[in-house]
Design a protein around this nucleic acid. Structure first.
Length: 574
DNA sequence: GCCGTTTTCGGCCCGACTGTTTTCAGTCG
């Protein structure tokens, strides 16, 4: 995979160009945008080049003749002359130096020019010898900030899983609300877009007592340190290892601020360009006409409306074509949490869950589910107390008994069956035929080669005994990489064999993820959004799965567990 | 360097905060 290397080189070129005596800020911006495009690609850029040549590279947004030639050169020769030439003039490690909070290319270069600092190790030495404070433009505080920045960089684990970040953000918002100091409040940023990992938290509030709000925040127990604090904005370092930006805005600007700070950046740039074209100026305070009057700003909807656009859920604001569709009022009506009728992936204490069948059923009914599928593990999952055929028979009859006792919710009989190394299933066909449907998934031999793994899964799908392929890539966010598998072939096999693809909504998994859903959408396949619950509390994690589906633009007609139980069972029989 | 619903030339999103400065450059989102 060339993408990350090439993206890093392009962004270093941008850093180096920004040091030029001549003002080259637009060139710099072009390189940054190109770097972003490449790093965000799903497919290897070398693969794109192999298939479509340099023209295919130039098709990518923000990449034209010049940068495409550099990319081509790197793929073919392993060198990039533009990069090498600049590096001769600026032989320092911009990548690591600029990843220090508050350090950009210009400061890094100044440190190199006067103190010969080339990398983070040099910088550490200079800090400990207090050589930085005497440099023009720097001072004692700058030296301290750099020292702090290095410590934070070394401690930081990068982006945090949404499942850890969102509850923290909600906690902070709740405390702000309870403080009585704020009017409206909202989470913004990538957390609001429900991106699977977030780099920091963004929170917006309205208040007439902004100073008191800042004071309140700086004293919260979640806060480790105040990074910066002004009249309308405070950035704090949270104990959980994330930065959190909190902004105080006027009532009349709340919607504009929410739109602005929800992003993503590319989405915003496009929306603002539309505003300009229509003679407006859009910023975080409102939508302003030629006379400087704020014509929309109280809520997001009025801003999009004034721009002739249809509003879309925050999850869709990633500049993946939604801006263009929005102008045509053709935003797909994506699935909502309220559409979800049942949950088809639920464990009990018959394998590795913590609660009984009845406890899970009652908890599910309480949050409005009309049915859940009990899907405990098969025998190969020793550690998860998986059951063999005989144990399953007994287990299934207990589900029947539970059904008789229950009102207002129906239990479906299922299992999460291991797909074994050779593609066979971990339960007999006889046992499987006693169930309403099955989930099949991979839990062992994760390091198989791509071809073998693809074959393994397709073989299972072709058995005719798999209803749902569960957590298809088996990745765990920030812990385990996805298995190496040809998803296009798998999606095709799912279409051919009527296998449903799962969107496992458990926040550590989110699998399929948004991008893979986007890809799978183009096949004639259905999806199931599940929680993979192992305790009653997990049942409410459905929102993570639904938001992931929204990010993949999925409409409810593609999601089987938006159906009522009778129609669903009929679908499984087919 | 990229790009095209006024443009193949002339634009390119916009504002907050900080430290080190005497009015602003650098960084960030």
């Amino acid at each position: 995979m060339y993408n990350s290397q090439i993206a890093e080189m392009l962004s270093e070129i941008a850093d180096m160009l920004s040091l030029d005596e001549k003002d080259r800020k637009f060139e710099v911006r072009a390189y940054r945008k190109a770097a972003l495009t490449i790093s965000g690609l799903q497919e290897d850029v070398a693969e794109i080049y192999k298939k479509g040549g340099i023209d295919a590279i130039m098709e990518l947004p923000g990449i034209g003749k010049g940068i495409a030639a550099s990319v081509k050169e790197y793929i073919e020769t392993g060198r990039m002359s533009k990069f090498d030439d600049l590096k001769k003039k600026y032989p320092l490690d911009f990548k690591s130096l600029t990843s220090i909070q508050g350090m950009g290319a210009k400061k890094a270069f100044k440190l190199y020019k006067y103190l010969k600092i080339k990398d983070v190790d040099d910088l550490k030495r200079a800090v400990s010898k207090h050589r930085i404070r005497d440099l023009g433009g720097f001072g004692e505080k700058s030296e301290e900030d750099i020292s702090k920045g290095i410590a934070i960089m070394e401690a930081s684990m990068g982006r945090m899983a949404l499942g850890a970040a969102l509850p923290e953000a909600e906690d902070i918002v709740r405390k702000l609300n309870e403080s009585g100091l704020v009017g409206r409040s909202a989470i913004a940023g990538s957390t609001r877009r429900m991106k699977e990992t977030v780099g920091d938290l963004d929170i917006l509030v309205t208040s007439s007592k902004s100073e008191k709000v800042m004071d309140f925040i700086s004293k919260m127990e979640e806060v480790e340190d105040v990074v910066l604090s002004g009249p309308t904005k405070i950035t704090v370092r949270l104990r959980i290892g994330l930065n959190c930006d909190i902004r105080v805005v006027e009532q009349d600007s709340f919607g504009a601020a929410l739109q602005y700070f929800t992003g993503n950046k590319d989405h915003n740039v496009k929306v603002r360009q539309i505003a300009i074209r229509l003679g407006y100026k859009l910023n975080e305070y409102g939508l302003f006409n030629k006379n400087g009057r704020n014509v929309a700003g109280k809520d997001e909807e009025s801003i999009y409306k004034k721009l002739g656009m249809e509003i879309m859920d925050p999850e869709m604001r990633e500049d993946r074509g939604e801006v263009e569709l929005s102008l045509q009022h053709k935003i797909p009506k994506v699935v909502q949490l309220g559409d979800m009728v049942g949950d088809l992936h639920v464990h009990t204490n018959h394998s590795d869950g913590s609660a009984t069948i009845l406890e899970m059923a009652n908890a599910a009914r309480e949050i409005g589910r009309k049915y859940i599928g009990i899907s405990d593990h098969s025998k190969s999952e020793y550690v998860a107390h998986g059951m063999d055929d005989k144990q399953f028979e007994k287990h299934l009859s207990e589900i029947d008994k539970a059904n008789e006792k229950l009102e207002g919710i129906r239990l479906l009989k299922s299992a999460e069956i291991d797909i074994l190394k050779d593609g066979s299933l971990d339960l007999s066909k006889k046992t499987i035929s006693l169930m309403d449907y099955t989930l099949a998934s991979i839990h062992t031999n994760l390091n198989m080669g791509r071809e073998e793994m693809t074959k393994r899964v397709i073989l299972a799908m072709e058995s005719g005994y798999v209803s749902i392929f569960a957590h298809p890539t088996d990745r765990i966010i920030n812990v385990r990489k996805p298995i190496d598998i040809d998803l296009d072939k798998v999606f095709q096999a799912a279409e051919d064999n009527g296998v449903i693809l799962e969107i496992d909504g458990y926040p550590d998994r989110l699998d399929l993820n948004d991008e893979n859903i986007m890809r799978a959408r183009h096949y004639k396949v259905k999806f199931s959004i599940d929680t993979d619950s192992h305790s009653p509390a997990h049942l409410s994690l459905m929102r993570y799965g639904v938001s992931t589906a929204k990010r993949g633009w999925l409409t409810p007609d593609r999601v089987v567990n938006t159906l009522g139980v009778d129609r669903l069972v009929r679908l499984f029989r087919r």
